[in-house]
């Protein structure tokens, strides 16, 4: 309880005080440090998620499940080498979020981005990607909690997932490019970047849509099965007494 309170306090501190302070300093210093400022803000936002996760001291089973899902999201692209531009990573992250909840969803998304950069090379894009993919898992999980996304409504879930990529995740990834590559962040450069990103985001959205449509149900079932199996070993469990 106590440590929970402290975590909450840190969260409030970060959101109400630290983030505005960073923005203020950045504005005062000028020099258009969009990239650096945005990275610091993102790291600040990620800290509460990670802190909560640490404070809870997750069990071995939970850690393993999270690691397995993140590793699957990382390698899933390899199953589609024959299909150009088909990267199911966002879709798998969203499914993991839907099945395992917002916090796990965020952690899986962020760690997937981080781990896949260990394969492809870390770069200035790493913190952005961690944040964005974490967000994808998080939002999907929140929508699942509200009953909007679930494996039972495959079409709806797939469409929402695709839209989420097209309207939120994709543009955010473009923003990272914008901040990173151009010094002149103005209407013109923003328009150029977002417009040139549109076809990529459309494909990304469609791929995620297909991934969710096909894989959401089977993966959710597999995860449920594991939960029951763990429950059997645990001793106290509701799934089995029924």
């Amino acid at each position: 309880m106590n440590s929970n309170k402290r975590t909450t306090l840190i969260e409030i501190l970060i959101i109400i005080i630290l983030i505005p302070v960073v923005l203020l300093i950045s504005w005062k210093v000028g020099d258009r440090q969009y990239y650096l400022t945005s990275v610091i803000v993102m790291i600040l936002i990620m800290i509460p998620f990670f802190l909560r996760f640490e404070r809870r001291s997750p069990s071995a089973r939970e850690l393993v499940t999270i690691a397995v899902m993140a590793a699957i999201a990382t390698v899933a692209r390899a199953a589609f080498v024959m299909v150009p531009h088909f990267s199911p990573m966002s879709g798998v992250v969203m499914i993991a979020g839907i099945a395992l909840g917002p916090e796990a969803g965020f952690v899986i998304g962020a760690l997937t981005a981080f781990a896949s950069n260990f394969v492809f090379g870390q770069g200035p894009w790493t913190p952005w990607q961690m944040f964005i993919y974490g967000l994808a898992g998080f939002i999907a999980a929140l929508l699942a909690k509200k009953g909007i996304m679930s494996e039972k409504h495959r079409i709806r879930t797939a469409l929402i997932g695709g839209l989420l990529i097209l309207c939120v995740i994709g543009p955010l990834l473009d923003t990272a490019t914008l901040f990173l590559e151009s010094m002149m962040v103005n209407n013109l450069s923003a328009k150029a970047i977002y417009l040139s990103g549109l076809p990529v985001n459309a494909i990304h959205g469609a791929v995620t849509c297909v991934t969710l449509f096909v894989l959401c149900k089977p993966i959710k079932e597999k995860l449920d099965r594991i939960k029951i199996k763990y429950g059997m070993m645990e001793g106290s469990n509701k799934n089995h007494e029924i």
Partner: peptide
């Protein structure tokens, strides 16, 4: 059909990976 084949592979991998995870968790505990 290529996409479907990829999905089947991903599903098979997920099953295998999660079952292996049970052993990993046991080994950790």
């Amino acid at each position: 059909s290529r996409i479907n084949a990829g999905m089947a592979v991903t599903a098979a991998l997920t099953s295998w990976a999660l079952e292996g995870g049970i052993i990993t968790a046991d080994s950790m505990q």
